[in-house]
Write a protein that binds this DNA or RNA. Sequence first.
DNA 1: CTGTTTTTGGTACCTGGTACTAATTATATT
DNA 2: AATATAATTAGTACCAGGTACCAAAAACAG
Lengths: 194, 194
Amino acid sequence: MKVRRIVVNKAERQRRLVRFLESDPFLTDEDLSQILRVSIQTIRLDRFELKIPEFKERVLTVAKNPGLSPRTLSSGELVGEMVDLEVGSSGISILTVTPEMALSKTSYIRGHHLFAQANSLAVAAIDAEIALTGIARVTFKRPVSCGEKVLARALIKLKKGNKYMVKVTSYVKDEVVFVGRFLIFAVTEEAIPQ
Amino acid sequence: MKVRRIVVNKAERQRRLVRFLESDPFLTDEDLSQILRVSIQTIRLDRFELKIPEFKERVLTVAKNPGLSPRTLSSGELVGEMVDLEVGSSGISILTVTPEMALSKTSYIRGHHLFAQANSLAVAAIDAEIALTGIARVTFKRPVSCGEKVLARALIKLKKGNKYMVKVTSYVKDEVVFVGRFLIFAVTEEAIPQ
DNA sequence: CTGTTTTTGGTACCTGGTACTAATTATATT
DNA sequence: AATATAATTAGTACCAGGTACCAAAAACAG
């Protein structure tokens, strides 16, 4: 039997799954199914094949072995939690909406949190020491409420010299809540004053 | 009203409950109900009165504690300080740039802080209980550094039903650093689910 | 014996799973 | 093109450890 293309995809997906969980053990099967764009059943099959324990177990392990926790690529620079980053091409981050992000009169969060997540992800995806946003065009498709998890995907659409066009789409479950197009400039270290 | 015997028991039980959870946060309500010889409902009542979160939350807190919650954006309703507001027509706010808004490699602040100031000002300028941003088109004219004061001016350009077009221009001294156009929707209280 | 507090019981619902079966889709081989 | 096989998805029943709510029972004070 020859190696099938789908098998390659499966192995690659499983490698990615392991990477994601190593960098962030707090991802649920649902998060992973959204990140990897497969059904939740597939994630469970993968986890089973890879002998990766369930969410509760992972959290317990981290909680009971404080020294072990590798913690996320939470660079502090980023709004949200980076779960994947292929510098120069794409990135994914997850933002868990907390009550203090919301407007007092509703449970809806203020738009600039979604913007911040998308903008910082877009900037992080650029392969440059320093990147600054020049122009952005964003659309808030529907309000986001407390407790929801926002998954943002960034994709570099175009690179021209030091200019990048990055498109970010943010989802809650499978619903698009935000779309943004960012024109970002890479800045060389020498160009910075002082 | 005199102190009842049962009240004493209750207070004592709650003190013991706290002690047990302090020494072992991984006790479930069922464990506690067996330790303290009361029903599980009583334990839940006690936890509620003592504002002690549930098992899952406790485990998550312990697991995530190593260096978390870096606080990204101000938690107030408005980003920046409102210095003038004519509801329904215009507004001005001032944002003093602090070092934690900056990228580590430069003194430049990340664009989403300017966006947040402009967006929250635009929303505040609308004469409505609740307003949500629909579309925004923003331009970052030049980077802003630590220590600078950003003055944002919002002007309602157009009102059509519940839709508003607000233009925000932000300055450092007399220099324009940011321009944004926001399409904002006023929402009536009844339209919000729950 | 009555009124109030405290405790208990029960239901419906939630998340993040396990365990299992069956159907569907994709791909490879004949 | 038909078929075998791998991979994926869908669906069900069940579990722990809860939340939220309501009603009933028990404990106790006056």
